[in-house]
Amino acid sequence: MISYKTVINGWNDFFFAPKSTDSIALFRILWCSLLLVYFLFDSQNIQTIYGQTGLISLETVKVHFPYPHLNLFNIFGNSDNFLYLFFSIYGLAIISALLGFCTRPALIIVLCCMVTLHQRGIWMMSSSETLMRIITILLVVSPCGHSLSLDAKVAEKFPAYRKEKDWAPWAMRLIQIQLSVVYLWTVWQKFKGETWLDGTALYYATRIESFKNFPVPFILDNLAVIKLLTWSTLIIEAGLGLLVWIKEFRIPVIILGIAFHLGIEYTMSIPFFEWVMMVLLMIHITPEEVQILKSKVGEKWVLVTRSRSLGVIPPA
């Protein structure tokens, strides 16, 4: 039997025992870099999706989504002038959050703009966009600007702005749990389908013209290999959801996960989903590992600047 105290202590240890904010800060940098790339690609949709000449009109969205939701276009309209101003603010906010300058306000602006755009094109959104919204909400409530940020640099000079570098990691834990939920739920749903069980799911998924990326003729033309890959997908996804929590398996599982998603990215055209998942896997990097990374990058930086000053490497 587990006592009530054990549960409370476990809860406190897991969500509230202070940890360095380096991990969540590194994750912020990776996540905002991803959002910036997505933003640049998405900018070409200003007229065809979000504007007044977009595929679906704002009025249709309003009629079919009458519940209270965050959509700034419902308040300000979606005129061209407003859209360009909106996109400029959105882009600047992503850059600001990436650099860690006024991190929380910047992330709140990013979240409001992102949800507005996603609500505007609600019928066009897929799992990667849902994850973008969920994770950005959790980043807003996290101390992700407390280190590896311009905010932290400012705080070094002005003690009034100093923030604690050790923090209760509950927001980071929620992101980690969310990632596991994505993998485990998708495996659960796949177990309900006969093609995943008989091993032919990958055959059908890779024959859809709209999803094809680069050709993989020998591997994906062999039924035995296709079956093996289908079942491996289930095992890898279940592993990514569960084994990543076990200390000894964490790093191998993260590497396997990245290889798995890169494989899908090469074979199939599912824009951004694989990159979202790869960046999300980085949330399992510990503060100690971030410290090692920081010192290695620091050493290299010192080496390069010294070599430049000595004339060994020409200035960039």
């Binding site: 519940y67 209270p68 939701h69 965050l70 979240l111 949800v115 996603h118 609500q119 609600i122 959104m125 799992s127 849902t130 919204r133 969920i134 909400i137 939920v181 994505v182 739920w185 998708t186 749903q189 796949k190 177990f191 309900k192 389908g193 006969e194 093609t195 995943w196 799911a201 990958l202 059908y204 998924a205 024959r207 859809i208 013209e209 709209s210 989903f273």
Partner: peptide, 21 residues
């Protein structure tokens, strides 16, 4: 509903679609 974050994670499940449109 405020943030439109209902989640189901149905990627290619229960079976991948066989129809390209």
């Amino acid at each position: 509903s405020f943030f439109s974050i209902y989640q189901d994670w149905m990627m290619f499940s229960p079976n991948p679609s066989r129809v390209d449109s």
